[in-house]
Design a protein around this nucleic acid. Structure first.
Lengths: 239, 239, 239, 239
DNA sequence: GATGAATGAGTGTTCATTCAT
DNA sequence: AATGAATGAACACTCATTCAT
């Protein structure tokens, strides 16, 4: 693809044998294959034939199914990291920053269902392959730092409630952006409502944002937790 | 099972050729197999050998891999429905009822990771097999009615905020109970924190309950949304 | 079936457990199964379920697949022998007798396609199972004797040409009655003509009878084979 | 095959990885397997092992059992068509041409028992696979045109009787060449005579040729069908 | 760098048959 | 006499992977 725009070399006008292009094509196809079929459902043949290369090349470039899958995982996660690095909330108010982060998360998963599927797939086998990646732990996510910074600033100026831990908040943000998308098919079937309909998604997002805002906003001085509320807080059934 | 009710004979207590027992054993093993390996990763051989019967019996009792999987799905979902039917919040205050429902959901998924895995697995292939089940759509979940009732009662007596839709709330409850469990492995790896540790889970649940309570509780009269808050609500980044 | 008309016995009014009836039903179903599917295509399960008895009974009554097949073969051939024994050409003119025998053969195969299929099937594996039958060689066909008698009488009174051997004639008769039926499907496809259409079959039979009559009729005295005809007779291409 | 044309190397004459040779070998073995065992009796393993290749190659080259069988059918029929195209009776007398055609048919089936077996096998399941072939209906047989031409010429010069239809004659020719071969095993067993013995076959062919010649030859002017003969013609028993 | 040919080890499924009641 | 439960051996077909060029 990009090969066409590359600098023409002495004896290779039409670069049919373009290694990097072929490799990129294979990886792209592999992402789709693993995302839609899962690890054991994915077929090496399918990857090769859809990329229109001989299956031998898949082995040549990636070594094997497992290595290919790991690279797919790394590639897809790297895209998220790259996008995350562009985030800069230094100029916005903390609570707005957090809400914008939520929107970013929501937007990224909406735009990249393959990431969602690969993560779900990975969790089904206890992140077995992610463990084997040497790149992934190195790709430290900047998001936690970002969140910690926003929370600190917010708490400091009284705009954000105290006692919210960055990781817990992050997991909550992702839960609320991820689950209703990743599990839309079964939920839609069970409740006979199309959760993938744009209207439903918009409504859900609006409600979620309201909940988050309330959660982040510190309670008014006279509205501190009363014994009554505390009791309610602990009234859960035992797990 | 039925063995326990049969007349005990001198030297043959355990009935070898017990169809219902064999079938039940197979189904139990199959639930584990499909939950841990997914549909395409699951092996019929493995099911048979772990249930210590000839593989032919799997086909005799269930017909085939797909039919077995569907039955596994139905069986596991039926267990949830059965438990849901035991819920009765008619005697508790609405807000407590909703929190207890959350605890129930959280507890059920914690106690039945196989359900979580099967649902995730199903979503990976767009609920393809769930669509084929004729039982599942018939197993109407009572939970939405329950929630609607609680919300109506709560709104009526002023204990619960207006404008919360049952299905949106239910999806939110499940999101918050489900995601951090189902995706614990990858999150643990990425953030180098053990999300499956009991302490982490407890902390997370406490924060989640706080958020939900705040969300459900109606705002004090003088704290209606201000122009400022409204603006924040719309300050999201475009998807 | 026939059981209903049998003499009522002391303690068995409704004969549900009627051994001979069950056996007969199984054999009938087996004939159809083997005729339509061939030996290796036939399924013991199919026989049992179509006869609405447990598969175990098939083994109980017949011993196994091979033994059942052989009995099917014997049963079907026995029907032919029984019908052949009813033939009596002592009162008709020899040439008419032979033509009537041809009509009988043609009629029997038309009425019993299962016999035709079983014979074809048997020939495909070199009559392997027929060899194993101890009944079949004992069921001497009376037809050759019949034919020999007719030929002798015909030759004696000058109505039938000399030099026609009974077995060769019989094989010819069967060829002409059998082949266009047994191979109708492929021929119909290849020549895009429905050989199973009644009109085609009638035309073909008429032509065949004309040929046979001419063959059996002795040539007029002055039309003995000439050198020219003799030469033609030998003008075949080498096999 | 192609090996013969390749440059002979010191110590490696036989090319091991020759696709066309492997494919041809597989097809040849498959013809034998399907001809001797029938469709359901044939084993894919047997084909592979007898061709000394991995079973995977059978699927690589042919797709599956059904596709392989259809190709076997097409290949075997194509051989017949190829041979038929070599026939040229423009220089011989019509009646000789027809007799030579009979000899050709007889010779071809004698030389290719696999064709006979495949056709019989096909008819047992109502030409189910032949229907699926898109090549077979396209392989129009030239034989009917040939026969029509010979008949017309023969009738025109008075050497052949009127009223003989090409397709009926062709089916008759094949019946007389085919049946006693295809059903030799059962007939031999029933009549305790070896129909496959060369002497028997020769005798039978001679008689058959006599019958055909008589049939084709027009009757002498004074020997037109008499009332007596007509009556005989209709004296058949009802079917 | 690139490719078609080839393969060992499964993988779901089916078959005829026997065991225990 | 009759039956449901259970099985070993095949069988068509597939998968990830390597060999030879």
């Amino acid at each position: 693809m990009a090969a066409a725009t590359s600098v023409p070399k002495p004896a290779a006008k039409a670069p049919k044998r373009d290694a990097t292009a072929t490799r990129a094509r294979l990886l792209k196809v592999a992402v789709a294959e693993f995302a839609t079929k899962g690890y054991s459902g994915a077929r090496m043949d399918a990857v090769a034939s859809r990329a229109k290369v001989n299956i031998r090349m898949v082995y040549h470039y990636f070594g094997g199914k497992e290595a290919l899958y790991i690279e797919v995982l790394e590639h897809t996660l790297a895209k998220l990291r790259t996008d995350e690095l562009k985030l800069d909330f230094s100029a916005v108010m903390p609570i707005d920053g957090i809400m914008q982060l939520f929107d970013f998360i929501d937007g990224h998963f909406a735009a990249h269902p393959e990431l969602m599927k690969l993560l779900s797939s990975e969790n089904l086998n206890k992140a077995r392959f992610m463990q084997k990646s040497i790149l992934i732990p190195a790709m430290a996510t900047p998001v936690l730092k970002l969140l910690q910074n926003l929370l600190q600033r917010g708490v400091a100026d009284g705009a954000i409630a105290r006692g919210i831990a960055p990781l817990h908040l992050y997991v909550t943000l992702v839960s609320l952006a991820y689950f209703h998308k990743s599990n839309a098919h079964t939920l839609s079937r069970i409740f006979e409502t199309d959760l993938l309909a744009l209207a439903w998604q918009a409504d859900h997002k609006a409600q979620t944002r309201r909940m988050l805002l309330q959660f982040l906003t510190p309670p008014p001085a006279h509205a501190r937790p009363t014994p009554r509320a505390k009791q309610t807080l602990a009234a859960g059934v035992p797990a």
